[in-house]
Design a protein around this nucleic acid. Structure first.
Length: 519
RNA sequence: GAUUCCGUAGCUCAGCCGGUAGAGCAUUACACUUUUAAUGUAAGGGUCCUGGGUUCGAAUCCCAGCGGGAUCACCA
C-alpha cells in the first residue's frame, strides 16, 4: 500500500500543477466535478451545418465539451471546444463574463485554473468572426470536469498539416481514450465500424433472420479448426473453452425450427498476433434454411454492395493504392480453376502423392501431417489467394478441408463451399451445410484421425451436435464474415489494431518497463 | 515463433568519432479586448526503457531483458 502511494506521488511537474489548481478551484467554492446536469441545446456539428441559414436559432446556446486550445490576448481570448461531433472556436471576453467589479472568473478561473483537456460547459451565442469563422461568443463558462493529466497537443496549420501528431502505436492503443480525443480520423474509423454492423443487421433483420446469442463458454470448442483458450469452471469443476466459432450452435437453432439466425460473435483463438490477427475478434455468422451456397453467394454480394452504398454512397472503395468495386455480382471461380490459372497445373484428378509432387514443383514446403485438403489449401494460399483484389468467390473446395460442408452435387471429392476473396484476403467463408448426420459423424472421425497424425488444429467430435443433426436439420446455407477484416477494408486500414478499440497488448509492467506508466 | 528497426522532457523529435542533454509545442510568470500552428519576454521541467559489461568517462559501444512497429511463418 505504501509502495502504491509512493508511486502515486511520482507526478510530473504538469500533473502537480493541475492538482494545485484543483485545490485552488475548491478554495474558490468551485466543484471541479459538479454532480448536476449541464443542459445542452446544441452540438458543434449542428452549429456548423445550420447556423448560416438559421441564425436566429443560435442566439441562446448551451454546449459542452473538452477545452482543446487557447489563444489568450489578455482581457479576451479565442479558444476551442471539442464535443462528440467536432470542434468549434469560442470567443471569451473578460468584461462580458465578469460584468461587475469581480473579475475572478476570468482572471483566475479562466486564465489560470482551466487547462487544455478540461471538460467545460459554455453558454452564449453564435457569431462569425471578422475572418469568417463561425464561433461561439461566450457569456457564461462552467467547469464540468477537471483534467489532471496534460493532453498531447496536436496543432494544424493553415495548410491543414497537423503537427506533433501522436503516431506512436503503443501510446495510441494503450491509451485509446487519448487517441480518440486528439486524432479525429480514429473516431471516424470506429463510427464506420458501427455503421457497417448496423447496415448488415438491418439487411439480415429485413430478410427475416433472427439475431441470437449462443454460448461463448463451450465444453467442446467446435465449428472451426483453431487452438482454443481454455478456462475452468469452479462450481462444475470442468474445463471450458472460449469459443473459436459459433457455427455448431447456430445450426442447432436451425434444427430447432428457426429458418434464419445470425450472430455477431466474438470468437477467441489462442494463436499468434499480428496486423491481421487479434486473440479475440468478431465474426458475423448466419444460417438460412432451405437455401444452398449459390443462394448465399448472391445474397452475400448484395449484402456487401448495400453496406458500401450505406457507408459511402458508392460501391467503389479505395484501399491503399487500389480501387475495389463492390458492385454485385462478384466474379465466381472454382478453386481448381484458380489454381490452374495461377500455376498452370490441373490438380483436379491428383491423389495425395501427386499433389505432394506438385507442391515440390511449385517450391511449396510440405509436412507429412498434411493431408490432401491441406496440400491443396497450401497451393491456393501461396499461389492464388493474393491475386484476387476485386471481390471474387472461390468455390468448390476439397472435402478433406471442409468437415462441416455438404458434398458437391456434381463433382466427387469436392464440397459446396465458397470463400470470398477481396484485396487478396479471405473475407467470408460459406457453404451448403452438411446435414447428413451419418456422414457428419464420419467426417468428424476423419478429423480425429488427422489429430492422431499430428494435426493439433483438427476438429473435436461434438456428440450433441451429431444428436441434433439426427433429429434432421433442413438443407441450409451458412456463412461467416470477418467483421474486423471487412472493417479494415472499408476504412482503408492495414492493421486490425486500428479497427479494434482495445487491441490485445502485453500488460504494462512498471517494474520492467517504466516507460509505460500505471499511475 | 524467426528476422529487423525503434525506446531521450507531458507530446513530437534532434543529439556526429564516447566527454556528462537540446529544440518546438505543452507547463509556469509577465504583457496583450477579433485570434486561429496567435504573438513577445523570461523561467522551470530528464531513472536518456531496465540490468549488466567495456572505458578515466556511456544517451552514444557490447551483452541480456522488457515493450512496441515492420516483414516472414501460422491462422480468420
Amino acid at each position: 500500500m505504501l509502495q502504491f502511494l509512493q508511486k502515486n506521488m511520482e507526478l510530473t511537474e504538469q500533473e502537480i500543477t493541475r492538482r494545485h489548481k484543483l485545490t485552488e478551484l475548491q478554495n474558490l467554492g468551485i466543484n471541479p466535478y459538479p454532480p448536476e446536469e449541464f443542459k445542452i441545446n446544441v452540438t458543434t456539428a449542428d452549429i456548423k451545418e445550420n447556423y448560416e441559414r438559421d441564425k436566429l436559432n443560435y442566439k441562446d446556446i448551451s454546449i459542452a465539451g473538452r477545452l482543446m486550445g487557447v489563444r489568450d490576448m489578455g482581457k479576451a481570448a479565442f479558444a476551442e471546444i471539442q464535443d462528440a461531433t467536432g470542434r468549434i472556436q469560442f470567443y471569451i471576453k473578460r468584461d462580458e463574463i465578469c460584468p461587475g467589479e469581480d473579475k475572478t472568473l476570468y482572471d483566475t478561473v479562466w486564465k489560470k485554473l482551466l487547462d487544455i483537456g478540461d471538460i467545460i460547459g459554455l453558454t452564449g451565442y453564435v457569431f462569425t468572426t471578422k475572418v469568417g469563422e463561425i464561433s461561439i461568443h461566450v457569456t457564461g463558462i462552467k467547469l464540468l470536469s477537471k483534467a489532471l493529466r496534460p493532453l498531447p497537443i496536436v496543432k494544424t496549420d493553415e495548410s491543414g498539416v497537423a503537427h506533433d501528431v501522436v503516431s506512436d502505436a503503443e501510446f495510441r492503443y494503450r491509451q485509446r481514450y487519448v487517441d480518440l480525443i486528439i486524432n479525429a480520423n480514429v473516431k471516424d474509423t470506429f463510427v464506420k465500424r458501427s455503421q457497417i454492423i448496423n447496415s448488415i443487421r438491418t439487411t439480415l433483420t429485413n430478410q427475416g433472420l433472427l439475431e441470437v446469442e449462443t454460448p461463448i463458454l463451450q465444453s467442446i470448442p467446435g465449428g472451426a479448426t483453431a487452438r482454443p483458450f481454455i478456462t475452468h469452471h469452479n462450481a462444475l469443476d470442468i474445463p471450458l473453452y472460449l469459443r473459436i466459432a459459433n457455427e455448431l450452435y447456430l445450426k442447432r437453432l436451425i434444427v430447432g425450427g428457426f429458418d434464419g439466425v445470425f450472430e455477431f460473435a466474438k470468437d477467441f483463438r489462442n494463436e499468434g498476433m499480428d496486423r491481421t490477427h487479434n486473440p479475440e475478434f468478431t465474426v458475423l455468422e448466419f444460417y438460412v434454411a432451405y437455401k444452398d451456397y449459390n443462394w448465399m453467394m448472391t445474397f452475400t454480394e448484395n449484402l456487401l454492395e448495400k453496406v458500401t452504398m450505406d457507408l459511402y454512397g458508392t460501391t467503389l472503395i479505395t484501399v491503399g493504392e487500389k480501387q475495389i468495386d463492390f458492385k454485385a455480382p462478384f466474379k465466381r471461380m472454382t478453386m481448381y480453376e484458380a489454381i490452374k490459372e495461377h500455376t498452370g497445373i490441373d490438380i483436379s484428378n491428383m491423389n495425395e502423392d501427386e499433389l505432394r509432387a506438385a507442391c515440390k514443383q511449385l517450391h511449396i514446403e510440405t509436412t507429412p501431417s498434411m493431408g490432401k485438403g491441406k496440400l491443396i489449401d497450401e497451393i491456393f494460399g501461396t499461389k492464388c489467394e493474393g491475386h484476387y483484389i476485386q471481390p471474387t468467390f472461390i468455390t468448390d473446395y476439397p472435402v478433406e478441408m471442409s468437415p462441416l460442408t455438404k458434398k458437391h452435387r456434381a463433382t466427387s471429392g469436392l464440397v459446396e463451399r465458397f470463400e470470398l476473396m477481396i484485396n487478396g484476403k479471405e473475407i467470408a467463408n460459406a457453404y451448403t451445410e452438411l446435414n447428413d448426420p451419418i456422414e457428419q459423424r464420419e467426417r468428424f472421425e476423419e478429423q480425429a484421425k488427422l489429430q492422431e497424425r499430428g494435426d493439433d488444429e483438427a476438429m473435436y467430435i461434438d456428440q450433441d451436435f451429431l444428436r441434433a443433426l439426427e433429429y434432421a436439420m433442413p438443407p441450409t446455407a451458412g456463412i461467416g464474415i470477418g467483421i474486423d477484416r471487412l472493417t479494415m477494408l472499408l476504412t482503408n486500414n492495414t492493421s486490425i489494431q486500428e479497427v479494434l478499440f482495445f487491441p490485445q497488448m502485453k500488460p504494462e509492467n512498471p517494474e520492467t518497463n517504466p516507460r509505460t506508466e500505471t499511475k
